[in-house]
Amino acid sequence: MLVVNNVSKQFGNFSVLEDINIEFNNGVYGLLAPNGAGKTTLIKMLVTLLFPTKGEILYNGTEITGLDEKYRDVLGYLPQEFGYYKNYSPEQYLLYLAALKGIHKKQAKERISELLRLVNLEEASQKKMKKFSGGMIQRVGIAQAMLNDPKILILDEPTAGLDPKERARFRKLLTELARNRIVILSTHIVSDVESIANEIIMIKDKAVLYKDNTENISNLLEGKMYETEVDFSEATTFRERYTSIAEKRENGKMKFRFVANGEPHTEWKSVTPTLEDVFLYAYADGITLNGASV
């Protein structure tokens, strides 16, 4: 079990995270927040690149910096900006990282070949990475994170650069992997985690806003989510009155998906809220929702 205990992080006088408390057990955790909310800072503390200004992070009851290499031995990490050696092939680069992860060369070669097959890069294993697309590089990154078969897999924006087919494949892969490990997936793309995360963690105003499963978080807007069509001339007034989540032109009118707290109008159609609705609503300026467990 990985526990973030009263963790705060400051850079000089600038506070990024305050009193964060989270517990991670086996399963997929979606760390969902807009860019700049502190996701990457939290993740960098989880992977020992940064250290909390206050509080502690424990793995199975022991402080992770104290565990040192024992902790990093069970850790797999894909950074948001995954760097690579341009003149190396994926196999060469993964062999280097495998050496850093303490994996013997023979064992590493087998594991690399298995992982490159898994991320569909088997045929490019000997090619120099400078010729790779962003998606291919990201897949090398995913493979390197899994090299040591980690107990804790932390992926920061892992789907950036992946095409829809690769994303679907990746989600399936994560679901399989999460059976016997902690998978923490940071993203600002709701669809990446909506279907696979056991729990969603949202961060707002330096603190954890919600930590619950997708259904419970979505239910925060139960009975408040509607769709309706409005004349173009009334669209501005409508926006001022209600929190618009999505808009599109349809049948010569403006179709709104929106949140309303009062009595619904008869022409409004009540809809089932999604995680994306809550995400967009929660990060709209000045909005706070109560109810989900933190």
Partner: peptide, 13 residues
């Protein structure tokens, strides 16, 4: 090479 984030979070660290 911007590989420090991967390299320094490995077991060798």
């Amino acid at each position: 090479q911007k590989t420090h984030l991967s390299a320094y979070t490995t077991k060798t660290g």
